[in-house]
């Protein structure tokens, strides 16, 4: 049998259905059942992200999720879905930039950036919810800062689940049930918890694992953090399952009076600028939405 490990840099991956070939340039990431590569379309040299997996159904779901959600901004563009040697592969727009975990490794984010990003994610997820879905695997690794086009993108849509269904794909740190705070059900509270934890991780500059830390210890950490009481209260409520809807969570964050100060750290300053630009766009979109323009 052909093995995933046999895909080398320079290998050509050619689709069985659409006959387009892609040359593998670089490994971008490896997961449980598949890998993501940076690849070059042989026809025209366009750079793309190529997700390949031995579990075809996951990519079939993701392909349709991405197509359904394409009307929201912040979703990578889908190019095609095809098969090669029994593997299924999904070709996506290549996004130049870093995911949020890159910024976390660089140090703590200011709480203002965390709140801006939280607002953006809450707004996007409320749109997802309005379409009858829930994105269950929200985590820093899945949120990209597109440095070329100055936007925030949620890159992994394989965890899109129908509202009210069982959550099958999650990461323990961002999973409300692993912390014993709520149920593993695809609802708004589930997403509010995950976004709150992403903000928490950004502010503290470190991740928490439910294997060796309790939720009370996480809450104690945020209480001790140097951060305005308004932000603390929102995070504590989010992590305790205190918001019923994303809208409530979004409104609470939006009501905060946030200002930014340069952190003196280049990587962090970059994210501040992009988050601010994106936040401004979203403020506009939410007003437009409110006026039912879109």
């Amino acid at each position: 049998m052909f093995e995933m490990e046999d895909i080398h840099l320079g290998s050509d991956i050619c689709g069985r259905w659409h006959n387009r070939c892609y040359e593998v340039l670089k490994l971008l990431g490896r997961g449980g059942t598949g890998s993501v590569f940076l690849a070059r379309r042989v026809d025209d040299g366009k750079k793309v992200a190529l997700k390949i997996s031995c579990e075809g159904e996951d990519l079939i779901y993701e392909y349709h999720s991405l197509t359904d959600m394409a009307c929201l901004s912040m979703v990578p563009e889908v190019i095609e879905l095809d098969e090669w040697h029994g593997y299924t592969f999904l070709v996506l727009e290549y996004i130049e930039g870093y995911d949020l975990s890159h910024y976390i490794r660089a140090g703590k984010c200011s709480y203002a950036v965390a709140v801006h990003l939280g607002c953006i994610l809450a707004f996007l997820m409320s749109k997802v919810w309005q379409k009858g879905y829930c994105l269950t695997d929200i985590k820093p690794e899945n949120v990209m800062v597109d440095t070329a086009n100055r936007r925030i993108i949620s890159i992994d849509w394989s965890s899109l689940t129908e509202a009210g269904a069982t959550v099958k794909e999650f990461t323990p740190t961002y999973d409300i049930a692993s912390w014993g705070v709520g149920q593993r059900m695809a609802d708004q509270r589930y997403m509010v918890f995950a976004i709150s934890m992403v903000m928490m991780v950004l502010i503290m500059g470190k991740s928490y694992s439910p294997v060796n830390v309790s939720i009370d210890e996480v809450l104690a950490d945020i209480r001790r953090a140097k951060c305005p009481i308004g932000v603390k209260n929102i995070l504590i409520a989010g992590l305790k399952g205190g918001y019923d809807t994303l809208q409530q969570f979004y409104n609470a964050m939006n009501a905060l009076d946030m200002y930014d100060q340069p952190s003196g750290n280049d990587r962090i300053d970059e994210i501040i600028n992009i988050a601010l630009a994106a936040a401004a766009l979203f403020a506009f979109l939410s007003i437009a939405n409110w006026l039912t323009l879109i």
Binding site: G32, E55, K168, T171, P172, S209
Partner: peptide, 22 residues
């Protein structure tokens, strides 16, 4: 099958079971 670090054990047991049923 899947090889995972300890902190991903719980999530992986879920996905492996569901995937195998599928």
């Amino acid at each position: 099958w899947q090889m995972v670090p300890l902190d991903m054990l719980s999530a992986t047991m879920c996905t492996v079971t569901y995937r195998s049923m599928h």
